[in-house]
Design a protein around this nucleic acid. Sequence first.
DNA 1: CTGAAAGCGCTTACAG
DNA 2: CTGAAAGCGCTTACAG
Lengths: 343, 343
Amino acid sequence: MNIKTIASLAGVSVATVSKIINNYPDISEETRQRVLKIMEETGYRPSSSAKTLATKKSSLVGVVFAGKLNVDFSHPFFVQVINAFKKQIGLLGYDLLFFSNEKFLDQGEDYLARSKYFQVDGCIIIAGDEVESSIFDLDASPIPCIGIDIELTGQSSCYIMSDNDKISTKVVEQFYMNGYRDVGFIGLERASLVMQQREMAFKRSLNQFSLDEKPEWVVYSKDYAAADGYEAAKKMLACKTLPRAVFAATDLLAFGAIRAFKEVGLRIPEDIAVAGCDDIEACRYTDPPLTTVKQDTDKIGRLAAMILFDLMNKQMDNRCIKVEPELVVRQSCGTAMLLAQEI
Amino acid sequence: MNIKTIASLAGVSVATVSKIINNYPDISEETRQRVLKIMEETGYRPSSSAKTLATKKSSLVGVVFAGKLNVDFSHPFFVQVINAFKKQIGLLGYDLLFFSNEKFLDQGEDYLARSKYFQVDGCIIIAGDEVESSIFDLDASPIPCIGIDIELTGQSSCYIMSDNDKISTKVVEQFYMNGYRDVGFIGLERASLVMQQREMAFKRSLNQFSLDEKPEWVVYSKDYAAADGYEAAKKMLACKTLPRAVFAATDLLAFGAIRAFKEVGLRIPEDIAVAGCDDIEACRYTDPPLTTVKQDTDKIGRLAAMILFDLMNKQMDNRCIKVEPELVVRQSCGTAMLLAQEI
DNA sequence: CTGAAAGCGCTTACAG
DNA sequence: CTGAAAGCGCTTACAG
């Protein structure tokens, strides 16, 4: 069942059928209805490949998980972003193609080749750490790209991320308002762009509130798991004096730290306050529930779709969009009331 | 840059280039090397659409989120399954196409039309509850389909799910071994196939261990959130006598139930044991950590890929594969030691 | 071992 | 308002 069959069934040319499929205006209403009816009856569906071949546009957006994350897209942040992105880009008429890196990476191929092969109209690039260089070939190509948590500099690229400066500022501010003055930080040894930003902003914020930055209160975890946060917190516990509040760069690290603190008899938040970042589901169920910063994944995903759409359909300059994060206050960081008596 | 350019650059015909691309054996090694070199130098990439148009095979697998879940693919279970599936099917040379239901569902289109449009070689159908009927048109078509948590009956379909009978049996068995005799259940009002299976198996298991099935100890929650589990548990608390152990059909429901029980001063697991199902990340961080049943999402995903591959490449009968779940024992269900004294 | 040519199912100037 | 025809970039019998 192809366009030719429909044409002959309707007694018109294939050109006419094509115009009807694509909503061209210069077709008589009568012909249009007749052809539409036949398409309906026969259950005819045009073929994407033929259309793509003829037009060079596929209505497909490639999804690229860059860096270590390409082995696993189970991180809630990325799933939420992709989810929002998918909805919005779907509304705009695009479908999503997830590249299977498994096979083609072995063969020394790259994302650009893959994108060309499928003639995707654009790509969304989601970054973890240790981003492979082939990502930047894609970025540099004429294929429109929108980056999430990765700095893209291509002519037809934009990128978007949470305002990581504000993430740290909001946490430090909250600690400060609740009366904490001695504040520590748990970061990551091999820090991605995002993690670096959080750490730098943390230090700036301390400065802003005239809080001391004690080097021994800034410790690093080996990896992202709660167990790594646990180990990092133990290094902190080895110091002569302890901070009264700790900001962990991710929720999982915070969970690990809480466990380490509790083990030595510290109460949270009475003895030491803890805040994380990400607002993963588990924050609500820990003891105590974890104060954290929630990234606006919905807005990031939807904005990414709109910007990519513009990149694909009109000229647009390379730029970076920052999205406002939101502090989610739970019991792990205390309250001003609670602390008033102790200060 | 197309196959014609490569051919003329190499001084051979396009047919020869095509054969080299597709690893046909009947090409002289010398020609092969010369053409390969030119493809390398020019960075030539064949076009998927032209290939698909000519061969009717796209090397694409469509991903369909059926039922209510199509608005949101943030459930950890499905993400994990898709993750494992993607890796395995990627190894086999296929890429994943996520249909954007948002737009085409409005226009009264369906999954089958969508699959034909893209000429996907097969589909993976992942089900939530309230599966729309158009799924079954896809199932009935000649397009190979593998279902996850959904019963597919098409000639070229198979389906796969956890052995839900065993999920309930393992929980009841654990309760029994830890000395609990009065066991309740929190299910879902609008139960999907999977939820129905868990409930029925729960009742069978009680029977198997000669435990009483008290109707008032089986309560239903309105939806999937922890808050719904909380409400359901309150209904249970309104009974004259309470069960000593409760199996909630999902972890989130269990979290809600734990909160309800704690609120009235019950200790977990000393006064009442609780078990959930899914093993979401938060189970490790609750107080107490939650005993639950973990579905083998990795095996489900990988098996799904292998079976779909077989469906796409050779004759195969419709059948259902069940995957063994695993009980994850944590503190919320007590231990035999702990209870010995009380019995 | 290699090539000429038809065909896959569309779109798009262009002519009428 | 409608149609004939070239073209998109591949594959595949078939002939040599």
